[in-house]
Design a protein around this nucleic acid. Structure first.
Lengths: 116, 116
DNA sequence: CACGCATATGCCTATAGGCGTATATAAAGG
DNA sequence: CCTTTATATACGCCTATAGGCATATGCGTG
């Protein structure tokens, strides 16, 4: 029912994903770091699990959660056509930025000229 | 108020974005192709505009909408850390192993730790 | 004036997310 | 065994908000 887009639309879930980038985390760790009540954390983790973003492994009484590439890659795939699109315009953008940079530099020259 | 994630969470808006990949479109064209009433289309277009996904240009009495890279690139940037994550540990071999693991499920507790 | 579009209004419905609380389960540890 | 610890899940309840629709109107332009 929930698309992968719905899954990552929720800020707390994105926060959890970000936590998991550096290393796997237990539910309790997530709970403490995000300061969210445990049932709520488990609820989000469930959504993330069913969405294919994470998986859990049993570690004693705890459960360690880790990222699963699947859905993240799916997102990446969705983005692909658009990526092709903007890379076509990058050249124009870069030329534009170059001009900006030039005018910024001239400006900075002017403003940093405080050295008598 | 609405994050870029909320913007693309809506199916119709994603449909609109997909339409715009191939070429710029007028509101009327979008309306006909998605079979959505005009006010609704305009509503979504507004969200997309404010989210930095599209921009409009006046063409006679019509308005042509075109993609704008900005927010799409932002999404891409958000995805970057995760991309690093999966490309580091998911090569063809591991993908294969993961499949084996899934089909044999609940066989092992701790997988070998591989840190990036 | 007729188009094409933006915006406003009103209304309705569904759903997500937050909270606290309670309970089941499984494993660790005494 | 019995008790913690750690987590999942289930309620119940409440609130906000999005999205759908129809309709109406304003506005700029050909």
């Amino acid at each position: 029912m929930e698309s992968i887009f719905d899954v990552i639309a929720e800020p707390n879930r994105r926060a959890i994903l970000s936590l998991l980038v550096s290393s796997d985390q237990s539910v309790g760790e997530i709970e403490r770091r995000l300061r969210i009540p445990q049932p709520t954390v488990s609820k989000h983790l469930r959504v993330l699990r069913q969405g294919g973003f994470v998986e859990s492994m049993v570690d004693a009484q705890r459960r360690l959660y880790r990222l699963k590439p699947e859905s993240l890659q799916e997102l990446d795939a969705w983005l692909a056509p658009f990526r092709r699109f903007w890379s076509a315009r990058v050249d124009a953008l870069e030329r534009h930025l170059d001009r900006m940079e030039q005018s910024t530099q001239t400006k900075r020259k002017k403003t940093t000229r405080r050295r008598k």
